[in-house]
């Protein structure tokens, strides 16, 4: 029994049902919408958490994948009439395969260099969406809603189930990975690449794979976002989105995958609670990020655990 209650399959299930319970209990479309966004952000952040927390590879270009995922899926379903679920999947695969372009610099670059290279990638995507994306800087609409067979996910509650089900599934898989020897190898990548090479590990393939997985999750989240809001403009995909993800992962806790959902819920609901100060969101984000890096280096989860132990 104890073993059953203390594994991540059960924990993911608890997380999933609590979110649904919350959505169904409050039954406010606005609140549900925010929960959907939190789920999308959690999925994106999970990708970054795998990359950065587990494998120690910083990426400031996740906004690029989020944007590509959203735009490709929207265009596939809008212009080529591909069914939405298929378009979402195709888009996530296509967009994440571009991450090879990031993984190869990542082979040679570390730390700050990788940070700026990925930042550059995100900026390029953002510029391209502005220049050549449908509608240019003002964006485009009429993107089809998510439909599965005959069922259209019209109301936020049904989308809530979809998004958090997908998140919980990948969350479970990600924790599988983190606990496996493959996950430990990724952690070792963070600590000593040289030692890994002397053990016979092919660093290139390791990095390419983790970059693809990480950006797949973020692209998938972008695609799901497109069919939820049905209107896209480049403004949602600026580098600020990458910074938000960074904040979620850091604030939740970089050493645990739980940092992604906890940080995402926190950061997504933050602007809602700070509505009166909406104008100063950047200032508040800046304060939170700086303070959490200096005082709460291991994240909320670590902090809570310590509190419980005391």
């Amino acid at each position: 029994m104890k073993r059953f209650l203390h594994n991540h399959y059960f924990h993911s299930l608890v997380l999933f049902s609590s979110i649904l319970l919350l959505g169904f209990a409050i039954r406010d479309p606005y609140f549900t919408t925010i929960l959907v966004f939190a789920g999308l952000n959690a999925l994106s952040a999970l990708g970054l958490s795998l990359l950065m927390g587990l494998a120690g590879q910083i990426s400031l270009g996740q906004n690029g994948f989020y944007g590509l995922g959203a735009y490709i899926s929207a265009i596939l379903s809008l212009n080529l009439q591909i069914p939405v679920p298929l378009a979402v999947l195709m888009s996530a695969v296509l967009s994440s395969s571009l991450s090879v372009f990031l993984a190869i610099p990542a082979l040679r670059l570390k730390g700050h260099y990788l940070a700026v290279a990925t930042l550059g990638f995100g900026e390029i995507v953002y510029l391209l969406l502005n220049e050549w994306g449908p509608g240019g800087p003002s964006g485009f609409g009429n993107i089809p809603k998510f439909t599965m067979g005959d069922i259209a996910l019209e109301n936020p509650l049904s989308y809530l189930i979809l998004v958090w089900a997908i998140f919980s599934a990948f969350f479970t898989l990600a924790q599988n990975l983190a606990q496996s020897s493959y996950g430990k190898t990724l952690q070792a990548l963070h600590s000593s690449e040289i030692a890994l090479r002397t053990l016979g590990v092919n660093i290139l393939s390791l990095k390419v794979k983790i970059f693809i997985l990480g950006s797949f999750l973020t692209s998938l989240s972008g695609a799901l976002y497109a069919h939820f809001v049905t209107f896209l403009s480049p403004a949602s995909f600026s580098v600020f989105y990458s910074v938000l993800l960074l904040m979620m992962v850091m604030l939740g806790g970089i050493n645990t995958l739980w940092g992604a959902p906890v940080g995402a819920l926190f950061i997504t609901f933050l602007p809602e609670t700070l509505r009166p100060f909406k104008e100063y969101d950047i200032l508040i984000y800046g304060l939170i990020l700086t303070a959490s890096l200096i005082f709460l280096r291991k994240g909320i989860i670590h902090f809570l655990k310590q509190g419980i132990r005391k």
């Binding site: 898989l173 990600a174 020897s181 493959y182 430990k184 190898t185 590990v201």
Partner: peptide
């Protein structure tokens, strides 16, 4: 174990789906 795994790896897919358990 990381070194042992490096000697005979079973890859990302199996790790994702089966985990450690």
């Amino acid at each position: 174990t990381v070194a042992l795994y490096a000697k005979s790896p079973w890859g990302m897919f199996k790790s994702l789906t089966l985990g450690k358990l």
